[in-house]
């Protein structure tokens, strides 16, 4: 698996072949608080970079989840729909949101490294 990359909308991405796995960062999960509802995109749906691809809700508010990558949704994590709290337990692991068949690999170059993201998140907490 490739090095994990991060977006300014607080998503993480890992790549295997031409498939990207996407979720929300530990920082984002902490900021949200207890996740109590997750809505995921439908399999087969085409999504555009920085377009809305899901919803995550805490007791306080609803937030959109964006995709940092353009492509087609190939899989979604039903287990976080059934147990939304799983997002808080392991946001950058078993709490992943969806997988995308990558259309344009060059988009990956625009994402941040962990070091850069941590710095970004510190400066842009929300």
């Amino acid at each position: 698996m490739s090095e994990k990359k991060y977006s300014k909308q607080h998503e993480w991405v890992t790549i295997e072949g031409d498939v990207a796995t996407i979720g929300i960062t530990t920082h984002a999960a902490e900021m949200l608080g207890d996740v109590v509802f997750v809505e995921l995109p439908e399999k087969g749906k085409s999504v555009e970079k920085e377009g809305q691809a899901g919803v995550v809700e805490s007791t306080k508010a609803a937030s959109d989840v964006y995709t940092p990558i353009t492509g087609e949704i190939t899989d979604t994590n039903q287990s976080i729909v059934d147990d939304p709290g799983a997002v808080n337990k392991d946001p950058e692991g078993s709490g992943w949101f969806f997988k995308i068949k990558i259309k344009n690999k060059s988009e990956l170059d625009q994402l941040m490294s962990k070091t850069d993201y941590d710095k970004f998140a510190k400066e842009n907490p929300n």
Binding site: G33, D34, V36, S58, K60, G85
Partner: peptide, 10 residues
């Protein structure tokens, strides 16, 4: 305070 460290549900 909106919440403390253990979270709203807790």
């Amino acid at each position: 305070p909106v919440q403390y460290s253990s979270g709203i549900v807790d």
